[in-house]
Amino acid sequence: MPQKSKIETELAPADLTEFQRMLATGRLSIDGLVLWLEGRGYEISRSSVGRYAQSFEEVSKRLRESRQVTDALVAELGDAAAQGKQGRLLVEMTRTLVFDLLMKLQSGQQEMDAAAVMKLGKGLAELARALRLDQDFELKLREQLVEEIVKKAIEAAQRGAAKAGVTLGKDALEQIRGELGLIR
Rank of each mutant, 00 (worst) to 15 (best):
K4N: 07
I7R: 04
P13A: 01
D15Y: 09
F19E: 06
F19P: 01
A24V: 02
R27I: 08
L35M: 10
E38D: 04
E43A: 14
I44N: 01
S47E: 15
S48V: 03
G50L: 07
R51L: 03
S55R: 04
V59E: 05
S66W: 01
R67I: 11
R67K: 07
T70R: 06
A72F: 02
A75L: 05
E76V: 10
E76D: 07
L77E: 06
A82K: 06
Q83C: 01
Q83N: 06
G84S: 14
Q86V: 05
M93D: 05
V98S: 13
F99Y: 07
L102C: 04
K104A: 12
Q106W: 01
G108T: 09
Q109S: 09
A115Y: 03
G121T: 04
R132E: 15
D134K: 10
D134G: 13
D136H: 11
E138G: 01
K140Y: 13
R142L: 10
R142I: 05
V150M: 05
V150P: 07
A156W: 01
A157Y: 04
R159K: 05
R159C: 01
A162Q: 10
G165R: 00
T167C: 11
L168W: 05
D171Q: 09
A172N: 06
A172G: 03
E174H: 07
Q175V: 11
Q175H: 04
E179Q: 09
E179D: 11
G181M: 08
